[in-house]
């Protein structure tokens, strides 16, 4: 079955990102296809590679990147939510004339249309948030 997963909250403050990750991993292990993971609202904060938790804590961001590398997951960060919160890739850094970019490996920035298109193509939308 084809899934789209929506993540509405950032890492660490809420269990949201953990639940979404565990669900995504379980869905893949069950042989399902995860068409897209869409990070929306504060969920875009899951995509900054500058995340640096203490050594005894999980790295929520690199965990997503690793899952994407292993399974070819499409991790999409909502563009409007991302720019508001300072999540940028290299080309947008240049375009917006900023001095840094921070998008983590395996993530890409795109529009809300990606969520809607994914949901139309998928069999299930599962939303995690606060």
């Amino acid at each position: 079955m084809k899934f789209v997963i929506q993540v509405n909250e950032g890492p660490y403050q809420h269990q949201t990102a953990d639940s979404a990750y565990q669900f995504t991993r379980a869905a893949l292990a069950r042989g399902h296809e995860v068409l897209r993971v869409f990070f929306y609202h504060d969920g875009v904060n899951n995509g900054t590679r500058l995340t640096s938790p203490p050594q005894d804590d999980r790295n929520i961001v690199s965990r997503w990147s690793a899952l994407a590398a292993e399974h070819g997951l499409d991790l999409v960060i909502c563009v409007a939510a991302a720019y508001r919160r300072g999540i940028l890739d290299e080309s947008e850094m240049k375009r917006l004339d900023k001095d840094a970019h921070n998008l983590a490996p395996g993530f890409r920035i795109s529009g809300l249309g990606q969520l809607i298109e994914g949901v139309v193509l998928a069999d299930r939308l599962v939303v995690f948030g606060d």
Binding site: Y40, A81, L112, I116
Partner: peptide, 19 residues
């Protein structure tokens, strides 16, 4: 919270998908 605003954005973008 910003959910109301986000919902409006999504409805307007969603309307372009002929759903």
């Amino acid at each position: 919270t910003s959910y109301a605003l986000e919902a409006i954005d999504m409805v307007l973008i969603g309307s372009a998908f002929d759903q």
